[in-house]
Write a protein that binds this DNA or RNA. Structure first.
Lengths: 187, 187
DNA sequence: GTCTATAGCATGATAGAC
DNA sequence: GTCTATCATGCTATAGAC
């Protein structure tokens, strides 16, 4: 995943920010061009179509997520692995809030042209959670479902944090999530 | 919330289904009209604008959610309350999957014209979770954040269920979620 | 209350100069 | 590789007949 720079980078950055606010369909190529400080023609020179632009954007975002989770887990297992992964997601959400919102909004859209590649990478990210859960419960058939649930909790929690109570620290939020995942909710 | 019927109902139904697939901006008033079996003019007769149409749609959806959670909790507390609310959300997601997807996609959009009323109802729904959590932990300042996290877990889990493993029963999914919320994940 | 027809505008995409 | 100018399309919304 060679790091993108220059004009391509400005365009991608402008695109996430706008799309996290107005949605992909609500973001025009003209908007993107203006925000990136280039002409519309240049956007089309760098990305052959609007679909291609956002496909690359989402694939990069979810790819980074998968990679980050893999690193965060490392060789850990159990609660330490979980905590490390929760922290990693929260850091990612905090450092790229627009991307987090975009992913949250697009991950369940099933009819987009870029859905198949996106779901592939999504599965890759979830696999890290599945590994941790299955290490503790080798016989449960619902590890994948629970992985999705945990991921949803952290993602929504993270966005919730930044949108509605950005004054809290990452540590506080991480503690809250782990507190919940530790069965203390109604104890 | 007087039950809407007739043409208005057909239009609303068509609108959720289309918007859950293509997003709100990706859904045209013409599409809605065709799917509802009426003319575009009739759509505008019943809803003054596209914004108003989707505002009502989302408010109804989240309103139903809040009401359902209130009923599900009743006078229960602790784990029984939680389980009852989890089941209620899953039932709602299952019975109205398009609405669930739409809510998941729109709930974090911060610049929509209908955002303020929507966030109000959202808070109302979360308040039910907050009540349960605060009953067990009166002194925790992060009850609201955890409520958001739990809600995110159930919502994402529910959609995940219907999109990727619709063969499972509601009971199975509910068990998975409660299993996770009970701290068994890495035990 | 529902229809058809159309105004008026914004958008995705391309062509061609520099 | 980036620009300006433009085309063709499709969109929201309205007017007016029935």
């Amino acid at each position: 995943m060679a790091r993108v720079t220059g004009t391509k980078r400005s365009i991608l950055d402008a695109a996430v920010e706008l799309a996290s606010l107005n949605g992909i369909t609500g973001t025009t190529m003209e908007d993107v061009a203006v925000r990136a400080g280039v002409a519309k023609g240049s956007v089309y020179y760098n990305f052959s179509s609007k679909d291609k632009l956002f496909e690359q954007l989402l694939l990069d975002g979810v790819g980074t997520l998968a990679e980050t989770l893999r690193e965060a887990r490392g060789t850990k297992t159990g609660t330490p692995a979980l905590r490390s992964m929760v922290d990693a997601i929260l850091e990612l959400v905090a450092s790229n809030q627009p991307m987090a919102k975009l992913i949250a909004a697009e991950i369940f859209r099933t009819d987009r042209s870029w859905q198949s590649p996106l779901q592939l990478v999504r599965r890759e990210a979830l696999a890290e959670f599945v590994a941790v859960i299955q290490h503790a419960h080798p016989d449960r058939p619902d590890a994948e479902l629970m992985a999705g649930t945990v991921f949803g909790a952290v993602l929504v929690g993270g966005i919730e944090w930044l949108v509605f109570s950005p004054d809290r620290s990452l540590q506080e939020v991480s503690d809250s999530v782990m507190f919940m995942l530790s069965g203390n909710l109604t104890a």
